[in-house]
Amino acid sequence: MAKNEKPTEALDFEKALAELEGIVKQLEAGNLALDKSLALFEHGVRLARACKEKLAEAELKVSQLVKDKQGLFTEEPFREGGD
């Protein structure tokens, strides 16, 4: 579970949260070796931090669908008027 640890573009928030929940449960059960516990703890901290960072850098992106001559939709940036 600690393998695909790339908190870049495709961070799956739901999965990260579920994993974090699992880690907390494992730690709370309290029957792990210390080094295993510490490894889990560190992994958990990394997950939480990755989520936080991803959330902090998120910016609202707005586009609009525009119909072209063939009746197909293309996506264009949307700029709000009269702001």
């Binding site: 949260l17 974090l20 907390v24 730690l27 709370e28 309290g30 516990s37 510490l38 703890f41 901290v45």
Partner: peptide, 12 residues
């Protein structure tokens, strides 16, 4: 969860 994680680690 981050809080729980820290608490659990402290407990361990």
């Amino acid at each position: 969860l981050a809080g729980q994680l820290l608490e659990a680690a402290e407990q361990v």
